Computed example of a mutant assay.
Amino acid sequence: MPANPQPPRGRGAASNPHNRFAPTVSEAWDDGWFQEVPPCRATEVRREQAKSVITRNRSPDVGFDRSVNPYHGCEHGCIYCFARPTHAYWDLSPGIDFETRLIAKTNLAERLEEELSRPGYVPQPIALGVNTDAYQPIEREQRLTRRALEVLLRYRHPVHLITKSALILRDLDLLGELARRRLVGVSVSLTTLDDGLKRIMEPRAASPAARLRVLRALAEHGVPAGVVCAPMIPQINDRELEALLEAACDAGARSAGYVLLRLPLEVAPLFEEWLAAHFPARAAHVMSLIRQCRGGADYDSRFGTRMRGEGPFATLLAQRFALAVRRLGLNRGPAEPLDCTAFAPPGRQLSLF
């Protein structure tokens, strides 16, 4: 293989590292027949009957305690995706497999209804599409996210979505109705305004301009929307932080957040491979800055620091974000909480006492 392998056309990862749970490892060997033009990789969708769909977490770093993910793997192919290592649980690689061998939970809506209808269920906002994007391209045919929103609206259950896809605008009818009942919030992930950088970093995600159109459309329909600048990568897109916040604010974002690049498990070597392929002259400097923010390691998973990092670079990034947010008038006052009191499973007899 070449020293700096290029990803297949339209994909983010350049290789398919072994599954860390696999008992054997296959090693590529150059037999002289390597093609300089990487082949295309088609997307495969495996259908799964899920036993449960609501996942619980106790992380103090996120603002929710439960989530629903319609899909495993994500066709957007973002090279930095923190969810890549989860593909190993299905005996698949966190590399190209994560982008091309996807799993759809075809009974998502039915399982969600069952779990929301259980006696004693106490509603709190569900984060829909966190581990992978609920509006990735296969949602256009699978429609699992839309069915989940239909269930949540029928049950009057609060939901929060985060996406980098313009496909969310297909569901403006549901989102508008949820918003009128104070049951929905949306975060749009915006990482760069540079189309060229977007193409190599997030090959199948929506363009920066399309994501700003999403923010405008959500605002016009009364859907509370914010922007998340995630991840911020030293010497790659961190210089755009203020410009990203300004563009999002102009498009109607009410709130803003950011996350410093995270490189858990297999994400670190995949990201380094990507740097070597696309930014060879600055690859060492980028990794040096990342390690300065992570106590000398590629990643620090401790609660409280994993999203922000520590050290001079991380501190400066936090100060820049705070100044920009204050100047633009974002995050003014506490966010209005979603309504958990309206929860009403269809057919359940409400007590009069």
Rank of each mutant, 00 (worst) to 15 (best):
S189D: 04
V37S: 13
F98V: 00
R199T: 11
Y121H: 14
N331T: 09
G295W: 14
F98L: 03
G295K: 14
R254L: 14
A206G: 07
D173S: 13
R156M: 06
E240Q: 15
L108P: 00
L197T: 04
P8K: 02
L261N: 03
G73Q: 02
P269F: 07
I126P: 01
G95L: 01
H157I: 03
S187D: 10
R180N: 09
P269A: 08
M201Y: 05
V122F: 08
R320G: 06
N131K: 07
P39I: 12
Y135S: 01
F271R: 02
V45Q: 12
A335G: 12
A225N: 01
N69Q: 13
P345W: 04
A42I: 09
T341H: 11
T163M: 03
G329L: 07
I236A: 02
S26Q: 15
P123F: 06
L215Q: 06
F64D: 00
D97K: 05
L245F: 11
S26T: 11
Q49I: 14
L317H: 00
A230K: 00
L102W: 01
I162W: 00
E220I: 09
D195R: 11
E139I: 03
F82Y: 15
V37W: 12
A217E: 15
A297F: 15
G226C: 06
A3C: 06
P312M: 10
C81T: 03
Y80P: 00
R56N: 12
F82H: 06
R20F: 13
L102D: 01
V159I: 09
G129H: 02
H18F: 10
R154H: 13
G257K: 04
L338G: 01
R254I: 05
R154L: 09
L330A: 07
L241M: 15
V223D: 00
K51N: 12
P70Y: 10
A83M: 03
P7G: 08
G347A: 10
S301D: 15
E310D: 12
V122C: 07
D65H: 09
E272V: 01
R84F: 02
Y135N: 01
K198D: 02
R143T: 04
P123T: 04
N4A: 14
T192N: 05
R204C: 09
A281F: 08
V53W: 02
S165C: 05
C81N: 01
R101S: 07
C293A: 13
A134T: 01
A109I: 08
E48D: 14
C40N: 14
L153K: 12
S93C: 06
Q124A: 14
L175G: 05
A248V: 06
V286L: 13
E177K: 11
E150N: 09
Y258E: 03
G226D: 03
E273C: 12
V227W: 00
P224C: 10
T191N: 08
A206F: 05
L289H: 00
S93E: 04
F303S: 14
S301G: 13
A248P: 00
L352N: 10
L338C: 07
H157A: 03
R20I: 14
Y89T: 02
C74P: 04
E150P: 02
Q319P: 03
G185Q: 05
A217S: 15
L323S: 13
R302A: 14
S117T: 11
L338K: 00
H76L: 08
E310S: 13
G63M: 07
V159L: 08
G309A: 06
F303R: 13
T106N: 12
E113W: 06
